[in-house]
Design a protein around this nucleic acid. Sequence first.
DNA 1: ACCGTGACGGTAT
DNA 2: TATACCGCCACGG
Length: 122
Amino acid sequence: MASGKTATTVSAVPPPHAAIHRAVLAIPRGCVASYGEVAARAGLPGRARLVGRVLAAAGEAARLPWHRVLRANGQLAFPPDSAAFREQKRRLAAEGVILRGTRVDLGRHGWQCNLDAELWAP
DNA sequence: ACCGTGACGGTAT
DNA sequence: TATACCGCCACGG
């Protein structure tokens, strides 16, 4: 580092948001994943909150399947009376993911649910 | 620089 | 199953 710039160690870690985008894109259609799962899969264990921030910052223009990301307990992360909540619920329903009460059945729609469906299918 | 907030999560009660 | 607590950390005031 010739110039007196802040060294920052040459190898710098890959931008967190990039890995997160990749992890979200990897969630199969009709399936869901928790913020924590996405974080872990992005190589950022324990950074669930960051996933939320990144998704919010990404916005619609990013074309990410953000609706497939929910809380670890199966609930949507938005207030039930918010527009965002309704939109997410609508998008999930369009993929066959329905809310059982206030939450999604993770056992049925969890990560890689398509594989499970294949095992159970006739 | 301190502090509250939040698209969260794991554990204990 | 539901609450309570605490850890986490980027941001904004």
